[in-house]
């Protein structure tokens, strides 16, 4: 009887972590996406382009580098899901949304750092790096997305 309690307890803890991860993680993701969509709509008038614009910008009064970054972590449930996916192969949707969230959040923060007087953000580069290896040694636990570009202000905007 006593020997059965150990593994059972482990199983209970595991299931608890999975369910907490599932509910809290799904809720957090939903909220984050809502916030991203809302802010993306609000910042839509400042275009962030990956082009460099070789021609001169005669009306531009100044340019300044701006950046934004975000570190987003995956929840326990999705980590298990991705672990299973790695065995069978195929599309790892759990990580797709994780990286998508981090990148979009980084772009939004870059725009927020640039401020409302910006006309355009040129030469936007996005970089992603894994800073995992924290809790579950080795797996992609969390990723950092960094977005940076040059904010251009035209003279009439100061």
């Amino acid at each position: 009887m006593m020997e059965a309690i150990g593994p059972l307890l482990n199983l209970i803890i595991f299931l608890l972590l999975v369910s907490v991860g599932y509910f809290a993680g799904t809720l957090a993701e939903k909220r984050h996406y809502q916030s991203i969509q809302k802010r993306e709509a609000a910042w839509l008038r400042i275009p962030a382009v990956s082009a460099r614009f070789d021609e001169k910008l005669p009306q531009a009064s100044g340019g300044e580098m701006v950046y934004g970054s975000a570190v987003i972590s995956i929840d326990y449930f999705k980590r298990i899901l991705a672990g299973l996916r790695i065995i069978f192969g195929g599309r790892v949707t759990a990580y797709e949304s994780l990286i998508d969230r981090a990148r979009r959040e980084a772009i939004l923060r870059m725009k927020e750092n640039a401020g409302p007087n910006t006309d355009i953000i040129l030469n936007v580069r996005i970089e992603t790096s894994s800073i995992g290896n924290s809790a579950n040694g080795g797996s992609v636990g969390s990723i950092e997305a960094l977005a940076y570009g040059t904010a251009i202000r035209t003279s009439q905007n100061g």
Binding site: G25, S134, G141, S142
Partner: peptide, 15 residues
Amino acid sequence: AGLKNIVGGELTAYT
């Protein structure tokens, strides 16, 4: 961060 890894979301300390 390890605890935050269970529920997912942004790791503000790392950012």
